[in-house]
Measured scan of single mutants.
Amino acid sequence: ATNIVSKVKWYNSTKNFGFIEQDNGGKDVFVHKSAVDAAGLHSLEEGQDVIFDLEEKQGKAYAVNLRIK
């Protein structure tokens, strides 16, 4: 899926990962520091509106092509 609009559930800049809620009630989506860095960001804030693409690797959903709404 591409261009999903949602909100950051939480992000831990010390552990370099977090999760984004899915508005459709699906499972929370993992977001890694590499996606945050690629977006030119230093961190994410809880409740922040984001747009991302969903990529599945080894049966897990990852946020990629992250951008701020």
Rank of each mutant, 00 (worst) to 15 (best):
K27Y: 09
K69L: 15
L44P: 01
N12Q: 07
Q58A: 13
G26F: 10
K57P: 03
D23C: 15
I20S: 00
G59F: 05
W10V: 01
A39H: 03
L41T: 05
R67F: 05
F17A: 00
A38T: 08
T14S: 13
D37Y: 15
V50N: 01
L66P: 01
N65R: 08
I68V: 13
D28Q: 07
F19D: 01
E56G: 07
D37F: 14
Q58C: 15
F52T: 00
V31Y: 02
D23M: 15
G26L: 11
E46C: 13
V50Y: 03
G26M: 12
G59E: 06
A63T: 02
L66Q: 01
I20C: 02
K60L: 10
E56K: 12
V64G: 04
I51L: 09
F17G: 02
V64W: 06
D53Q: 05
Q58L: 12
V8A: 01
T14N: 12
R67Y: 05
F17C: 03
D37R: 14
F30N: 00
Y11H: 01
E55M: 14
V50A: 03
E55Q: 11
A63Y: 02
D23Y: 15
K7S: 05
K57A: 11
Q48F: 07
N24W: 11
G40P: 01
K7P: 02
Q48C: 09
T2G: 07
T14A: 13
I20P: 01
K15Q: 08
N16I: 02
Q48A: 09
I68A: 09
I4E: 04
Y62E: 08
F17R: 01
L41G: 05
D49Q: 14
L66R: 00
H32P: 04
K69M: 14
Y62H: 10
V8S: 01
W10S: 03
V8I: 09
A63Q: 03
A1N: 13
A63R: 00
T2P: 07
E56T: 14
G47D: 05
A39K: 03
A63H: 02
V5Q: 12
K7T: 08
R67E: 06
K60Y: 11
G18W: 04
D23H: 14
I20N: 01
Q48T: 09
K9D: 00
S6F: 06
D53K: 03
I20F: 09
G18N: 01
I51G: 04
Y11R: 00
E55K: 11
W10R: 03
E45T: 13
D28I: 05
G47P: 01
K7L: 04
Q22G: 15
I51D: 04
R67G: 04
H42S: 13
N24S: 11
F19G: 01
S43Q: 11
Y62V: 08
G18C: 03
D28R: 04
N24M: 10
A35L: 04
G25R: 09
V31F: 11
V8R: 00
E56W: 15
F30Q: 02
W10C: 08
D53L: 04
K60E: 06
S6W: 08
E55L: 13
L41R: 05
V64I: 11
V8M: 03
T2W: 10
T14L: 13
A61G: 08
V5A: 12
I4P: 05
H42F: 12
G25M: 09
D23I: 15
K57G: 08
N12G: 04
F52A: 01
A1E: 10
L66A: 01
E45W: 15
E56H: 14
T14W: 12
I4G: 06
Q22L: 13
N24I: 10
A35P: 01
V64C: 07
S13R: 13
N16S: 10
I68M: 09
K9S: 04
I20L: 15
N12I: 06
L44D: 00
D37I: 15
A39C: 04
G26N: 10
Q58M: 13
N65C: 05
I4A: 06
D23S: 15
L54D: 00
Q58Y: 14
Y62A: 08
H32C: 07
G25V: 07
W10Q: 02
F30E: 02
A61D: 08
T14Q: 13
H42T: 13
N3E: 07
E46Q: 15
H32E: 04
Y11Q: 01
Q22T: 13
S34A: 08
A61P: 07
G26T: 09
V8N: 01
K69D: 11
N16V: 03
I51K: 05
S13G: 10
I51F: 07
W10T: 02
E46D: 10
K33Y: 08
G26V: 09
E45Q: 13
K7Y: 06
A39I: 08
I68S: 09
G59R: 05
A35R: 04
G25H: 09
H32W: 03
F52I: 07
A63W: 03
K9H: 07
A38F: 07
K57Y: 13
F30C: 03
V64K: 09
V8D: 01
L41M: 09
D49S: 13
V50L: 10
G25W: 08
V64H: 05
N65M: 03
N12K: 09
Q48S: 08
N3H: 09
D23V: 15
N16W: 08
F30M: 04
A61V: 14
K7A: 04
V29Q: 01
V31D: 00
A38N: 08
E55G: 06
K27N: 10
V29P: 00
Q48D: 09
G59Y: 05
A1K: 15
D37T: 14
V5C: 13
V31M: 04
K69Q: 12
S34R: 10
L41W: 11
Q58P: 06
G18H: 01
L54A: 02
K27S: 10
A38L: 10
A61N: 10
K57E: 08
K57R: 13
G26H: 10
N24C: 11
E46M: 14
A38D: 08
H32A: 05
W10E: 01
S43A: 11
I51T: 10
S34E: 07
K9Q: 03
K7R: 12
S43K: 12
G25E: 08
L41E: 06
T14R: 13
L44T: 00
D53T: 06
L54G: 01
A61E: 11
V36C: 03
V29T: 06
G18K: 01
H32D: 05
V36G: 01
R67M: 06
K7M: 05
F17N: 02
H32N: 05
F17M: 05
K27T: 09
V5L: 12
F19I: 04
K57M: 10
G59M: 05
K9F: 03
G59P: 00
K33Q: 11
S13I: 12
K69C: 13
K15W: 11
K9W: 00
A35T: 09
K60T: 07
S6L: 05
G40C: 09
A63N: 03
S6M: 06
V29E: 00
L44S: 00
F52P: 00
K69A: 13
N16P: 02
L41I: 11
G18V: 02
A61L: 14
K7E: 02
N3K: 07
L41P: 02
A1M: 14
Y62K: 09
D49M: 15
I51P: 00
G59H: 06
V31R: 00
V8G: 01
D28L: 07
E45R: 13
G18S: 00
A1S: 12
A61W: 15
A38P: 03
F30I: 04
A35S: 09
H42I: 12
